[in-house]
Amino acid sequence: MVSVDELRGMIGKEAKVEVTQIEKGMIKKAAEAIGDPNPLWQDEKRARKTKYGGIIAPPGLLITAMMSGSRPEGSMPFQRLLAGGGEWEFLLPIRAGDVITSTTALADVYEREGKAGKMLFFIFETIHKNQLDEVVAKSRSTLINY
């Protein structure tokens, strides 16, 4: 079985790059999936009057539809996997038409003794940049492998 030290050797290595083309339909779908009727995400006419000058994506789009926690292939030694939590920093608005490149790397890995035996905690960090190379968001997610 792969050791924690070997896993720690993967910290900072870029695990995955995902490119997401942001579209109005995608924003609408993400808002509907949680039942969020806020006009800022869906009503162009209304959103145009705000400081954003048009529809922006809700924070939930990043949480729902964008990569934050890909797992490096084959690196998880145990069978069961549980999402432990997440953290999102929203730096700039995301809009329809943006092309977001999300780069995820392993940020930390550690072992804990749980009720069911050894548990491995994997922390993944994702940097999301738009087509202008601006960082629009950062996210972290915890996956528990046991």
Partner: peptide
């Protein structure tokens, strides 16, 4: 949060544990 803070408010960070 976004329902509460209105159009002029900004959510800058959210974290939670499942």
């Amino acid at each position: 949060i976004t329902d509460w803070i209105g159009e002029e408010g900004r959510l800058t960070k959210l974290s939670c544990s499942y």
